[in-house]
């Protein structure tokens, strides 16, 4: 359950999650990384490593 006491915000350390979420350029980097690895990179690898057809 949430803390019912109002915390003294100035004194409190900003949580790691909030600092990470506020880091716009970190998000930009991660966003690019995920799509270029999982979609584009993996996709290119899939296409370029297809074997030649034997046409049985």
């Amino acid at each position: 359950m949430p803390d019912p006491v109002k915390p003294d915000e100035a004194a409190e350390q900003v949580p790691l999650g909030q600092r990470l979420f506020d880091n716009v350029f970190l998000l930009l980097g991660l966003g690019l990384l995920v799509v270029f690895v999982l979609y584009t990179g993996w996709g290119l690898w899939e296409i370029l490593t297809l074997p030649q057809a034997t046409l049985p």
Partner: peptide
């Protein structure tokens, strides 16, 4: 969204 939504190009 930032991390995963663009993969849906598939």
């Amino acid at each position: 969204y930032v991390l995963f939504i663009s993969m849906a190009s598939a």
